[in-house]
Computed example of a mutant assay.
Amino acid sequence: MSLPPDTITPQLSEAVLAAMNAATEAEVMPRWRALESHEIRTKSSEWDLVTDADEAAERHITAALRELVDVPVVGEEATAQDGSLLDLVDGEGAVWVVDPVDGTRNFVAGSEAFGCMVALIDDGRTVASWITYPAVGREIHAAKGVGTFLDGERLLASAPADPAALRGAVSAKFHDGDRDALLAAAESMGPAQPIRYCAAWDYLDVVTGATDYVAFTRTLPWDHAPGALICQEAGLASARPSGLEYLPGGDVNAGILTAHPSVWERVAATLRTA
């Protein structure tokens, strides 16, 4: 199904945020800085962690979202068990995409840098998204054509303060070329740092001006569908480094670059040299 035009309302947005907050309050925050070793496991690699909090929160959110808009839910943890769920993201009709604990490694380490992310996708394009930051009590959300709202206030991103010294955050972990060359290219434009390994916080940084751009090399939909729309609706450009449109169901290795339109092309061209 394609969504009726009046699906995304302020009431729906409030209900989604309430569902996310209820799940994190019940399943995530009681385990933060209190995880036992048996509550932590690996998925695809030793680097790829999952916890009881991830799985329990995703079940909670999935049930709540189906009550709000009854379409399939593509959750990160459910997809780890059934990879075919990813096919729904670029198919016809609507789906929810959920990352119950974005930045699981940070969560396990006791850091505040984790989030909860939800996106609503219709016919392959993100139409609404929500991110909460449970450890600090913040939220940001957006709807296509409506705008971005941070803690309830409309947010418009600013151009970089110093275009000659751009502050970047760059992911090199999944870069299929020379990682050192990628980082060197970033540093040629100004101070560069690694991503936070929590897309929720990396997108918050760029949309609020803490960084001037963020570049990722792998784009699983639950990591990037929410943040890309939030940045676009705040006036930033968020697209494949090649210049192609970012679609959540596209090639997960095609990368995504987010920056102010005034510098996006320059950043993309510089990073493409690596």
Rank of each mutant, 00 (worst) to 15 (best):
E46I: 06
A210I: 02
L236G: 03
S84I: 07
V101P: 02
T219C: 13
L257A: 00
G177H: 04
R41C: 13
V206Y: 03
P261M: 01
V50D: 12
E233F: 09
P226S: 11
A274Y: 01
D202W: 03
R272W: 05
G250H: 04
E77K: 04
P4A: 12
Y197I: 05
G93H: 02
L229V: 01
F114R: 01
H260L: 07
R138Y: 09
T270D: 02
D87N: 12
G249K: 00
R167M: 09
F174W: 11
E36H: 15
S171L: 06
R125C: 09
L183V: 05
R196Q: 12
Y213K: 11
A186V: 00
T79F: 07
W201F: 14
E92C: 10
F174T: 14
L85C: 10
E55T: 14
R266F: 03
I131L: 13
R272N: 10
I40F: 10
A26T: 14
T217D: 05
K144P: 00
L35V: 04
L65C: 00
W96N: 01
S171Q: 08
G177A: 05
A269H: 07
L244G: 13
L220A: 14
D251W: 01
A210Q: 12
R167T: 03
F107Y: 13
A164V: 03
I61M: 14
T270Q: 04
R240H: 13
E187L: 07
Q193L: 00
V28I: 10
R105P: 07
P10Y: 04
A192T: 06
A161C: 04
W130I: 12
L35Y: 09
A80K: 14
A109V: 00
H175C: 08
V73G: 04
F114I: 05
R154H: 14
A199I: 10
A165E: 14
I8W: 06
A161R: 08
S188D: 02
L49R: 13
S171K: 01
G145C: 10
L236E: 07
E112A: 11
A274L: 00
A259D: 05
L257E: 04
T208G: 05
P261E: 02
H175P: 03
R266K: 11
G137M: 09
A215T: 06
G249I: 09
V71T: 00
A57L: 07
P163N: 05
Y133L: 14
L150E: 13
D212L: 06
L12S: 02
G177K: 00
R31N: 10
T7V: 09
E39I: 09
G147V: 06
T270K: 00
A18Y: 01
V108D: 09
T51M: 02
A80V: 03
G145L: 11
G115Q: 09
A23Y: 03
T62G: 15
G243I: 08
S129F: 08
A34Y: 02
R125H: 12
A157L: 00
I195V: 15
I40L: 06
M20I: 10
L247V: 13
H38C: 11
E153Q: 15
L17M: 13
I230N: 08
M189C: 04
L182E: 07
V207S: 06
